[in-house]
Nucleic acid binder design. Structure first.
Lengths: 228, 228
DNA sequence: CGCGATATGATTGTCGACAACATAGTCGTC
DNA sequence: GACGACTATGTTGTCGACAATCATATCGCG
């Protein structure tokens, strides 16, 4: 495989990274639903590469917790039960509280303003009735929140949790009765950060978590595997 | 490779996992110091396996952030600058605060008692003058703290951060003037959890973080790579 | 003596093939 | 008819070899 393009110095993202990103996207948006099996050979043939890079990409996602691998059996898209959903949101909130704390210590006003801009985008999507866009804006808000904290490790952990969140959100497509509540929750968080009200930020992030869990759990399909 | 033991259903840890664990241990304890290069072929020959499993193990550690890989060049043990150290402790404290919060919501008394037992072990090591044992007990304390929260995701994130912490601690071997302070900090955290004093727990975890950073940063060898 | 092009060595990246393993279906026997 | 062993199939696990790439050292030239 030679590079046919001569003009274009360095854009070389490693092959496994590209494959992993692609698979991650499919999983996040539900094209690869929970429980689906991924076969190395099939993907390899489909992408026109050897099994090596595919294997590496799959292993990456496995370590992120998006795939579960069973020896000599196959790898499958992870399925989340009630306990997992609680755990995802618990962990995500932990990361975001830390990020918010860092923002509060720094230029909270600027960060809050930026987040409020995200909220406006979300509100516009809500007004337009575009559920998917609202969810995207929701994710973007949280992503921005952590990104602005400029902590590589928090960001990295958060990225994985956000993908899992996307998977969770897929199951409540079009199940929102009142999206305005959702928007206002985010606005409240952003304003609290802007105003430097530390305790209020933490309380609102916790409340946001509890709300999300309360919305997600009642949905059927949340099979609790924790049956001993 | 047949299982010679008949009694003992399933203990098959995959080969890459074993290799990764071994490498992780060497990195944590400093046998593989920061900056050291790992050559796939060498390790493969040394362990008597192909490059495939080694590659997989290395990739795992790379994703954990313990190794850095440079394309077509090699993989090296990660080196942490001041900013990284701050980040590690920031992220670790975030996880531990979340775990402590969960414990406080549950049976904080039992958790606090268990942690106090860990503190006693640490104090015994201090009294014996065994610096390494004190550090081990230190790590064990934090590990136990998060483990008791029973959150798979928090535990997973924490495990990586703990390995990084071990790497950091290696550089201040025998540099403690007053280990008793260190012990008392942990005792204070455990007691606050036991007594269910949520805010106090958070404050003490933050103070513990600040102290650790203050102890680590002044040490020479903490090169700030952040020179743009 | 300094500089650039070239040759060389080392390491990772990729590939195709084979081996090991687990499951599911089939057949024979009780 | 039910149970157990056996066979068949699919998937991952492992291996050895080759290709691509980068860093270093060497040589020729100005």
């Amino acid at each position: 495989m030679k590079s046919s393009r001569v003009l274009q110095p360095i854009v070389q993202e490693s092959t496994p990274s590209l494959i992993a990103a692609q698979l991650r996207g499919h999983i996040a948006e539900g094209a690869l639903p929970p429980g689906a099996q991924l076969v190395e050979a099939d993907i390899a043939r489909e992408l026109g590469v050897s099994r090596g890079p595919i294997r590496e990409a799959i292993q990456r996602l496995t370590q992120e917790g998006l795939l579960v691998s069973i020896r000599n059996r196959g790898v499958f898209v992870a399925e989340f039960d009630d306990e997992d959903i609680r755990d995802i949101y618990e962990a995500r909130t932990a990361v975001e509280k830390a990020a918010a704390g860092i923002l509060a210590d720094g230029d909270g006003a600027r960060a809050g303003a930026e987040l409020l801009r995200q909220v406006e985008r979300m509100d516009a999507a809500r007004a337009a009735g575009d559920d998917t866009a609202v969810s995207e804006a929701d994710i973007a808000f949280h992503e921005k929140l952590v990104e602005m904290a400029a902590s590589p490790r928090l960001s990295k952990m958060h990225a994985t949790l956000l993908t899992e969140t996307r998977m969770c959100l897929n199951r409540l497509q079009g199940r929102y009765d009142d999206e305005s509540v959702r928007v206002e929750e985010h606005r409240g968080i952003a304003e609290a950060i802007r105003d430097g009200k530390r305790d209020l930020v933490m309380d609102r992030l916790d409340a946001h978590k509890d709300d999300a869990i309360a919305r997600l759990l009642p949905i059927q399909g949340a099979n609790s595997t924790a049956a001993s």
